[in-house]
């Protein structure tokens, strides 16, 4: 791919960056439309696998953009698109936070803090719920209803252990991987 087309994609990702309220995956459907349907730079399967891999690997899920960039334009593509998706939103967050910390005692900032904290918890719970569904549906498609129920039980067991103990999460993830191999 030539540099000009790469810059065009990067510019579009800069725009999407400002729309990623609630995380990078919220704009993934529009990235798919742009890269796969409109431009034909990637196949649908390449796109979906990039997201799945970034979720399975350690680190922020937004790194699926580096994988997309790698497939679109090699190393320069990976670096350029990753910067494009993170930089504009980061600048906004930084300056908004400066204003916020300068006005911590004002009524509006205190009210924002009290009002938004429960929402943050609700959105986090939603994130887990959606991942649980994805895993259960994926297992169901591979090995039928018992596997789907099995994944649900696996999620519930992990939840209980995570709440009841201070075990290193790595053990729970490894246990999940093993259970996946045994159940499916």
């Amino acid at each position: 791919m030539n540099l000009l087309s790469l810059l065009e994609v990067a510019l579009y990702f800069c725009f999407l960056s400002l729309l990623t309220v609630g995380g990078g995956l919220t704009v993934s459907s529009d990235m798919n439309r742009f890269l796969v349907t409109e431009k034909g730079y990637l196949t649908h399967a390449q796109f979906t696998e990039s997201i799945a891999l970034a979720q399975a690997a350690p680190g922020p899920n937004i790194l699926f953009v580096a994988l997309l960039g790698w497939q679109v334009g090699g190393l320069p593509g990976a670096i350029l698109l990753q910067i494009a998706i993170v930089l504009p939103s980061s600048l906004l967050a930084y300056y908004a936070n400066r204003w916020r910390t300068g006005n911590l005692q004002t009524r509006i900032v205190r009210a924002t803090r009290t009002g938004l904290s429960p929402l943050a918890i609700g959105f986090t719970l939603s994130g887990g719920w959606v991942v649980a569904w994805g895993a259960a549906v994926g297992a169901g498609a591979l090995a039928g209803l018992p596997a789907q129920v099995g994944m649900g039980i696996l999620t519930a067991v992990t939840l209980v252990i995570a709440l009841a103990t201070r075990i290193n999460p790595l053990w729970l993830i490894a246990f999940g991987g093993l259970a996946g191999v045994l159940i499916l």
Partner: peptide, 13 residues
């Protein structure tokens, strides 16, 4: 897939 199911439990926890 199994790692995904376990990760979901961690996030909800």
């Amino acid at each position: 897939i199994g790692m995904g199911a376990a990760a979901a439990g961690l996030i909800m926890g």
